[in-house]
Design a protein around this nucleic acid. Structure first.
Lengths: 270, 270
DNA sequence: GATGCACCCTCCCCCCGGGGGAGGGTCCAC
DNA sequence: GTGGACCCTCCCCCGGGGGGAGGGTGCATC
């Protein structure tokens, strides 16, 4: 039961509220190694001063910090570094929360019994040369990338001569990462930093407008997709968004207007 | 590419932003069955009106609703029932958030370089007969159970003659569920509903006080545990909490005082 | 010193909700 | 009729555990 201040795994479990199983796993993962392991029997013995470490692990796991990150946090001797790593993860939790919020908003709209009919327009868009920033981006990073790119674009371009927009590769949604491009129409597009001129090809676009914050924009995408299929069209390229009214125009998200345009071609006679 | 308004899995994937793999999995799980499955080739074909269902699933999964629950939500034809099931899950997310908040509070305290010394007292507690409610409870349900039990207890007992408290089986923390008892000291404890008299045995308690909300009470538990071990004692029974100052006394969580008492016996000469 | 029994060990399989990749068949536009 | 994009099934992998089998240990009690 006792061995001079050294704790068997069961006692340590009681004191830390970590299950015996979990303690063994943390040993295997070299995350929390017993103070003593009896070579003959394999019995693990912990010391009381390992309790704080166990508690830190426990809390970090409650925050869904991966074991590998937990290890890095514990291994970093400097409290400042630790705090930074933890803050990083809290940041991740924060954006997780954003995702949750927008999922809730989408659900609310999806589960509404009545769906307002969609106002869809088929529009021929000519080619245009614009100032753009583009990159291959992971879906999770799109928002952050977008914020940085638009800031740089605005700094370089100044006042655009038309409606700003973006192109989003279908692969972004299919496989979680893809090519993304944001642009500002401007006369004589400059080349500076990441900004460079790009000629957007002429396309036939199926266009609809999404009103409000982007939380539930996925719903509008789906409705537009249904319309595309119902009208015997097929998707032919990255989706285009144009930001008719956005955060740069009004602080009221309810007033935002985003046009969603899907390049299409006809697959069957009308 | 097209078959009269019917979509191959890849097209459906593009339209719903669900990966092909995931769509196949949802088929296997009978969650979202293709409108047509070609018997000869196994090719799955979806119809455009399955897009809303796919979107609902997508959003529910973003909220970490288990697939089985997603199925129940989709299968329930009544919008009211659906909404209730979704609300249930949002409630779960809410309590998850509470857990996260308290984990963050604990971490903040744990990662502080300086730990204030613990004020621990060894106290002989005589046996006492109290009015109690007890049950076997899962760790996740403790808070809800506690709220119900104390409400019933207060309704039956009225004003207690001493400090209210609770006993928490160590198994609750070790294996996720265990025996829990809440009590009010009172003269001539009544028997009504779940309330019944219980005689708490006399014990030798190691006692310390936790000040503030219970978010980071686990940290105090750990410190007390260290003290127990450092003083050559061993745990001998369910931990006791007494609520010296609680939410019934003041709305300010910072003023709450909870005594934590661990029954102990001496395992080595002093 | 034996015995009972709580405790501890390792090992293997299971859960969830996917992703990676192999190996092979199908669709359809040119 | 052929190339290439698309689709199929099957198996293994991940993380962070839980359940349980089968067997060894520690120690208080007799």
């Amino acid at each position: 039961m006792h061995r001079g201040g050294v704790l068997a795994i069961g006692e340590f479990s009681r004191l830390t509220h970590l299950s015996v199983r979990t303690l063994r796993r943390y040993h295997d993962a070299r995350l929390l190694e017993p103070a003593i392991v009896d070579g003959a029997t394999g019995y693990r013995y912990y010391s009381a001063d390992q309790i704080p470490a166990a508690q830190v692990i426990h809390r970090l796991r409650e925050l869904d910090v991966p074991l590998s990150d937990v290890q890095r946090i514990l291994r970093s001797p400097d409290p400042g570094t630790r705090a930074a790593l933890v803050a990083d993860h809290l940041q991740r939790l924060e954006s997780e929360l954003d995702r949750t919020r927008s999922a809730v908003a989408s659900l609310r709209r999806l589960l509404q019994p009545e769906q307002p009919p969609l106002d869809v327009e088929l529009r021929a868009v000519p080619a245009a040369t614009v100032a753009a920033i583009e990159d291959d981006v992971a879906l999770d990073d799109v928002l952050a990338w977008y914020a940085g790119a638009t800031a740089e674009l605005d700094a370089v371009v100044g006042e655009p001569t038309g409606v700003p927009g973006g192109l989003y590769d279908n692969a972004l949604f299919e496989s979680g990462s893809g090519h993304v491009l944001v642009y500002r129409p401007t006369t004589d597009p400059p080349r500076s930093g990441r900004v460079h001129p790009v000629t957007l090809p002429a396309v036939e676009l199926v266009v609809t407008a999404h009103v409000g914050a982007h939380d539930d924009i996925g719903v509008t995408y789906g409705q537009l997709g249904s319309w595309v299929v119902a009208n015997a069209l097929a998707v032919a390229g990255p989706v285009r968004e144009t930001y008719l009214v956005g955060p740069r125009d009004t602080a009221d998200p309810g007033a935002w207007r985003t046009e969603i345009g899907w390049p299409v071609f006809r697959v069957a006679p009308p």
